[in-house]
Design a protein around this nucleic acid. Structure first.
Lengths: 379, 379
DNA sequence: TTGTAGGCGTTATCAG
DNA sequence: CTGATAACGCCTACAA
């Protein structure tokens, strides 16, 4: 099949009009007579014409695509059962069927379930509404720079999850196309930015712990220093404490890396402290769910009861928080909305390149579950 | 920022070489001296040069992108908690935080959880390995044709989930770029195709029901007639029965539409039959999980016990099967592998346009859970 | 309502 | 190892 693909010109010749007219008909700019339209439509069908995006892009200087740059981990985050994809493709000679009895789900997902797939979904939706296509790339190691620049050369704008790109690369990219930063991990920036109400979320959560559960000794487990979201969350933590008249530390006493493994380490330290006679805080507020789940792993293993002995909370709203024992109280982020808002910010920026930089903050939801104690049901 | 983006030529001038040389350096074709390389690299950095994919594509006649065309429902399938995205964006004036007590998850997802996000993940991975970028589109109604053709003009090949595109559109597309069909719903085709061991999966499952659970009266709930996967699954169903010496119908007695709602209707009919004195079959084997879950909804509501009164099984391996009550025995599809295999087939086809059409069948896993009865643990 | 002409930024071909 | 030079397929004034 497919010799040389038919071009606009072929269509024009066949329809007996000029290529300009065909162009007009296709993009329906300007005026085209009904006759011409019909002839063109026929020619297109007969020839099987498909416009070349490359030529279009070159001539019009826009590609009608936006790029999404997600953390490598996103690959893992999109993880679902039945996935496999470990690196080796399924053996061609392997059995067509295997049988297992109720397998336990894969142990621990790296980054434990912040479904970036949701972000993609939201972004795709917004792009679709704007008549744009979407292309996604994971910021994987080898060749990161080349691949990201390639993407930059291919799109009208990019959404970049904060922290996925080295600063100089990000700068290089943003000299070419507008960039919207999706705050997540990583450092601040001078681009349009979309984030969530981190501080308010934690503040409200802590308020609940203090007011409704009467907890007065709380501790915060953060991320590494300089993580903007974490800093905001900690600020919310402090604010709530101070407002309740409880002494609050200047900085988190514990710092993790947002991972469950590190959460376990911190859990071990806490438990070890108890063994030495230290007393557990009334509540441990974690900067994210994975960290909290890591602590929970250790608490369960060592007989520390949650919420009786210590209340535990997370942030993000990953799926695992619903099925942990006890289910984890957390602050849920609207992932799909993040994607949508990011693309919306991008299209706005593309439309008005010189408008002021914007920051969009999306609302969060405090989800009260067993890990912070029993609830009547009116928050 | 950004006046007129620097071009290859600008880089060449600045580096004091010809544009050809710059091109060579960038794509590292042919030979370029170290000096030239260095000068070029500097020029690129200083200018913030990013190659234009449009120009590249036009000149080289390849775009280094592959497209993925997913069913509209995929939008819903990527669904996760914290999603929202109902159509209206979050109110700007809305509260930054809201609080809820352990909300039940959103009722029912349309198509209930065939995570196409997994397919995307697998496809992205394979594309990445091949140095390709990926663009995804959902086959949404208005403008389907225009959008799909636009995608076709933008990529070197497309993966299309079977049934998402009208035949004539698919044909139009495939006149331009190679197409790999991901069997799912819909009709057969003359393209490279990737699918799973549908028949073998069900066959093995039924074998288990008969041999290990001693069930001798089984019924099959299919999809609408002409659905290839369903037909294969039914064939596996028949084969297992016949081999076990059990009479098997020529065609499914019940037909659903793969949806949970329709599954409920079928469930109601079954229950109504019982009320009229009919006797339940020993097992109901459903063509997919959603249908089975629909039946289960009704059975639970009417006190029909699974697996005591009737055994129930599905197909797909959606997440909900793990948390239903009882957990649903099913045949799990390797979603990510499907995506990967599809892109692999595509790159192979692109490399050898005239090779014979291929069919790739991926292995499945029969997952035994509570809905088919107790198990020791050796299948 | 339609056509003409020129250029968009790269790659590929062919000589040096 | 390097440079001219011609496409590549379409859009966009501008003119008719």
């Amino acid at each position: 099949m497919r010799g040389r693909a038919p071009t606009l010109r072929d269509v024009a010749d066949r329809a007996g009009v000029s290529s300009t007219t065909v162009s007009r008909a296709i993009n329906d700019h300007g005026f085209v007579s009904q006759d011409a339209r019909a002839a063109i439509r026929n020619a297109i069908d007969e020839l099987g014409y498909v416009p070349s995006a490359s030529a279009r892009g070159l001539a019009s200087r826009r590609t009608a695509m936006v790029g999404l740059c997600l953390p490598v981990v996103a690959a893992d985050l999109l993880h679902r059962p039945g996935a496999r994809l470990a690196g080796a493709p399924a053996q061609p000679g392997a059995e067509a069927v295997s049988v297992v009895v109720d397998p336990t789900p894969d142990a621990i997902l790296p980054w434990g379930g912040m479904y970036f797939g949701e972000v993609v979904r939201g972004a795709e939706f917004a792009a679709w509404e704007a008549g744009l296509a979407i292309t996604v790339a994971m910021s994987r190691s080898p060749d990161l720079e080349a691949r990201v620049l390639t993407m930059a050369g291919r799109v009208d704008g990019m959404v970049v999850v904060s922290g996925t790109l080295p600063d100089d690369l990000l700068e290089h990219v943003s000299r070419r196309v507008p960039v919207v930063v999706l705050t997540g991990l990583g450092s601040a920036s001078a681009h349009d930015r979309v984030t969530v109400s981190n501080a308010e979320g934690v503040e409200r959560l802590v308020e609940h712990l203090v007011a409704d559960h009467g907890i007065t000794s709380l501790e915060y487990v953060g991320a590494w220093a300089g993580t903007p979201d974490d800093e905001e969350r900690f600020r919310g933590f402090r604010r709530a404490l101070l407002r309740a008249g409880i002494a609050a530390p200047e900085s988190p006493r514990w710092r993790g890396d947002l991972g469950r493994r590190r959460g376990r380490e911190i859990g071990e330290e806490l438990v070890a402290g108890v063994a030495r006679g230290e007393v557990l805080p009334g509540a441990v507020v974690c900067c994210n769910d994975d960290t909290a789940l890591g602590l929970l792993d250790v608490f369960s293993a060592h007989g520390v009861r949650v919420p009786e002995d210590v209340v535990l909370t997370g942030f993000d709203g990953v799926e695992a928080t619903r099925t942990s024992d006890p289910p984890l109280t957390t602050v849920e982020q609207p992932m799909a909305e993040l994607g949508r808002a990011a693309v919306a910010a991008l299209t706005a920026r593309i439309a008005a390149p010189s408008r002021r930089t914007t920051v969009t903050s999306l609302p969060v939801t405090v989800v009260l579950r067993g890990s912070c104690g029993p609830h009547s049901d009116a928050p």
